[in-house]
């Protein structure tokens, strides 16, 4: 079970959180201007990364804040978490590396 570092509450067990999918996918400013394919890209396409991945979590049973986490999808190592609007922490060089 993951131990997730809420930027406000600190480390709590995964059961207190909800997963929110890939981070940094902004809703288009003016959806009406987009072609169907562009809109479909926003709606459906995600990167499915093997290795370090920026993803969103909601501390649903705690402070109810949404935030971002960098997690290695191979090892489940969490490099760090950061608030919405903040810059992600620096990533370790190679994917799949041990801490």
């Amino acid at each position: 079970m993951l131990n997730i570092d809420c930027p406000w509450c600190g480390k709590r067990h995964e059961t207190e959180f909800h997963y929110g999918g890939e981070a940094h996918i902004a809703r288009p400013e003016d959806p009406a201007k987009l072609e169907d394919t562009e809109w479909a890209e926003f709606l459906f396409m995600r990167t499915n990364t093997k290795g370090y991945f920026a993803e969103r979590w909601l501390h649903s049973h705690g402070c109810r804040r949404w935030f971002n986490v960098i997690r290695n999808t191979v090892t489940h190592d969490i490099v760090g978490s950061y608030k919405m609007g903040e810059k992600p922490p620096k990533l370790p060089k190679r994917t799949g590396d041990a801490k």
């Binding site: 909800h18 929110g20 809703r27 909601l58 649903s60 109810r64 949404w66 919405m84 609007g85």
Partner: peptide, 17 residues
Amino acid sequence: AASVLDWLEEYLQTEWP
């Protein structure tokens, strides 16, 4: 009820702060 509240917060916190 719970999923709607989470969804409202999601938009307020992530898309339209």
